[in-house]
């Protein structure tokens, strides 16, 4: 009885490992990617890329040209700060994504060979005894 259970366990494990788990991991990978994008606020950053930093703006009504130019300069600086900060996040996001893709690829390779490891290691160990 226990032998049958063990046999069905191994078969079920291999079936799941090679045929069912890829779909699950795809789902998981998508959700992780979405979470990364959400955590780094990518969609918000893209939408508000040129917005002033923390809405810090100044505007002078009916004042001299000099003061109005000064206000324009201040606002430009505010937007520049926003662009710089947001760009930093985008660069970080890009690095994360590259790292993520590389990890996924490596993970996939390891995943494929992992179930064979026990047998491979067992055979490998024989070399130490024989030698």
């Amino acid at each position: 009885m226990e032998g049958m259970l063990a046999k069905s366990l191994i078969l079920s494990l291999l079936k799941w490992w090679y045929f069912e788990s890829p779909k699950q991991f795809l789902t998981l990978a998508k959700m992780i990617a979405r979470k990364i994008m959400d955590s780094l606020s990518i969609s918000i950053i893209l939408r508000t890329f040129f917005s002033p930093w923390k809405k810090v703006t100044s505007y002078k009504h009916n004042n001299s040209l000099e003061e109005r130019v000064r206000a324009l300069e201040d606002n430009a600086v505010s937007r520049l700060v926003g662009v710089v900060m947001r760009s930093a996040i985008l660069i970080l996001a890009a690095l994360f994504i590259v790292f993520y893709i590389v990890t996924l690829m490596l993970g996939s390779i390891i995943w494929i060979i992992f179930p064979t490891l026990p047998i491979a290691l067992a055979f490998y160990s024989l070399g130490f005894i024989i030698s």
């Binding site: 959400d38 606020s41 918000i44 508000t48 917005s51 002033p52 923390k54 810090v56 926003g82």
Partner: peptide
């Protein structure tokens, strides 16, 4: 919303 959700708010 992430770390930057408040960056465009005052």
């Amino acid at each position: 919303g992430g770390i930057a959700k408040d960056w465009s708010s005052g």
